[in-house]
């Protein structure tokens, strides 16, 4: 079995009194798409920064591509592609020059970087914008350019911090398609997200993080199997009556969650649960049976929604 690309044991980061990352363990295998799923402030970005050696850990062990980031920052970053949460493009340079100049930061030869930049522009579907100014690009284009830029050094692993946050649905799908291609080519992807659909789409394996700790680990499907039922019944009775209705449907399904705007009934057979609700004489304003998602896993594990 090949050595993990990134391996952490008891990884901890404190800022003064505040513990951002609280003793987490994980190992990321080569070629894997690994996700950190959690709400804002869970410590995902801090973990990414420690992996990228742009933040030093307070304690614990961390190996990235065989190096200790505290000692070998430049060596590690030479082999990583970093896509930060805010795009951080060089707005004083044109689109193509963003790629070329960035490649030069890695010490790659100019003729190579020039050729590679054209290919990456094509990959990012930005060839037409070659000479455009960066500040005129749309959000999705900027993100694709940032990803292309992160690929200029042929990284062994790509770190993507919230890759599709703030993008419209169409731009997200274009981006997911590009990331899928990278995955197919065997690039190790490490990403953080607070979108469960993104995690389900892209990740082979993920950890659910909350308040700096890992609360669960596995593939999206296995997490759903382990922590949720096959189906979920969502019923709405109006915000004032949800709590009372929840008491009335007590006992239906395997578990009930009351959210401010709706009640969730967990059952392997959602339709059966719905019939049971109606049999008790309750008539919800709206009802919906759906498959369980990672959102339900997160709710089960932390008692909170992913997106507040």
């Amino acid at each position: 079995m090949p050595a993990p690309v990134i391996e952490a044991t008891g990884l901890t980061k404190r800022y003064g009194e505040f513990t951002a990352v609280d003793g987490i363990d994980f190992a990321i295998e080569p070629g894997e798409a690994f996700g950190f799923l959690g709400p804002n402030g869970a410590g995902k970005s801090t973990t990414m920064r420690m992996i990228a050696a742009t933040s030093t850990r307070t304690s614990g062990a961390l190996r990235v591509l065989g190096f200790d980031p505290a000692e070998h920052g430049p060596e590690i970053r030479a082999q990583l592609g970093i896509v930060p949460q805010a795009d951080q493009l060089d707005e004083e340079l044109r689109v193509i020059d963003n790629l070329i100049v960035y490649g030069r930061y890695f010490g790659l030869p100019l003729p190579y970087v020039k050729r590679r930049a054209e290919e990456l522009l094509e990959f990012a579907q930005l060839t037409e914008k070659r000479k455009a100014r960066v500040d005129g690009l749309s959000g999705g284009m900027k993100r694709r350019l940032t990803i292309a830029r992160g690929l200029i050094n042929a990284p062994k692993a790509m770190l993507l911090d919230e890759p599709t946050t703030g993008l419209d649905p169409q731009a997200r799908h274009v981006l997911w398609d590009r990331l899928f291609r990278l995955k197919e080519e065997g690039t190790t992807l490490v990403l953080t997200t607070h979108y469960m659909d993104e995690a389900e789409q892209l990740c082979d394996r993920l950890v659910v993080v909350d308040k700096g700790t890992i609360v669960a680990e596995g593939s999206p499907a296995s997490l759903i199997r382990q922590y949720s039922t096959r189906e979920v019944l969502e019923v709405r009775f109006g915000s004032a009556r949800n709590a009372a209705a929840a008491e009335a449907i007590e006992g239906i399904g395997q578990r009930i969650e009351v959210l401010p705007d709706r009640v969730l009934v967990y059952d392997d057979d959602g339709e059966a649960a719905m019939s049971a609700v109606h049999e008790r004489g309750l008539s919800p304003i709206t009802s919906l049976v759906r498959r369980s998602s990672l959102e339900d896993v997160f709710l089960r594990l932390t008692g909170r929604s992913l997106i507040d």
């Binding site: 070998h72 430049p74 060596e75 030869p109 190579y112 050729r115 590679r116």
Partner: peptide
């Protein structure tokens, strides 16, 4: 293009980690 990995910085001694010679 044949892909090229970024060269590893070769700086040793006390400047390692803060200087890549680039």
């Amino acid at each position: 293009t044949e892909l090229m990995q970024a060269p590893a910085p070769t700086i040793r001694g006390p400047l390692r980690g803060i200087y890549a010679g680039n």
